[in-house]
Design a protein around this nucleic acid. Structure first.
Length: 197
DNA sequence: TATTGGATCGCC
DNA sequence: GCGATCCAATAG
């Protein structure tokens, strides 16, 4: 039997497939981040898929613009945007170049380097450090400067992670007003760090 | 050039 | 339940 090193960086080919396959495949993976000279690790526990075609809620729905340009670029990069004038959201770009598809990271379970996360967000419980799309960007110090960042670099990357034990739940996406019925949200069943049950 | 409203969060 | 606070997208 073969095993994969849990800290192995995910290969560029991992990101190139269908966004609806990539989204659930991201659950259980570990996001790693160099922050203040420390190594931060957090497990991905909740995501949502967005796609140019048939999904009016996607920023890429109307075709390329200045803001969404990264969504149409190569897979395996970060698409970061400002929402409600004050919060950031981060996405993993998927599919072929020229196609606007990405996976929104909605919640993480902090694993290592919690001091750097706590320094950016004052919360009573560690499970609340990154249990929302704006919260996780704040905790990780991710903002518009990281838009377009290549995940093969050494600032922020994804690792293979351990084998999943919890089942994956599929449901409707949160906080949108268009294409509200598409079941494109995925999260780890019963996980305490999910933004909403 | 002006107006509108959003893939949110935290406090009231 | 509601306001904060910016800017991309869309309309004029």
């Amino acid at each position: 039997m073969t095993t994969t090193n849990p800290t192995a960086k995910l290969d560029p080919s991992f990101y190139r497939g269908s966004v609806l396959e990539l989204a659930p495949a991201l659950l259980g993976r570990v996001l790693a981040r160099r922050l203040d000279g420390d190594l931060v690790r957090a497990r991905i526990v909740e995501v949502e898929a967005y796609h140019q075609h048939g999904d009016a809620a996607a920023h890429s729905f109307g075709g390329p613009t200045r803001r969404n340009a990264v969504m149409f670029g190569p897979a395996g990069r970060l698409y970061v945007y400002l929402i409600y004038g004050m919060h950031h959201c981060m996405n993993i770009v998927a599919e072929d170049e020229g196609v606007g598809a990405a996976v929104l990271l909605r919640a993480l379970e902090p694993l290592e380097g919690l001091g750097s996360l706590r320094a950016r967000r004052a919360v009573a419980r560690d499970r609340d450090l990154a249990n929302g799309p704006g919260k996780l960007c704040a905790a990780l110090g991710v903002d518009l400067n990281h838009n377009g960042l290549d995940l093969q670099g050494d600032e922020l990357w994804l690792e293979h992670g351990d084998m999943l034990s919890a089942p994956i739940v599929r449901s409707k996406r949160i906080g949108i007003t268009k294409s509200v019925d598409l079941p494109w949200r995925f999260h780890l069943a019963g996980h305490p760090c999910v933004s909403r049950p």
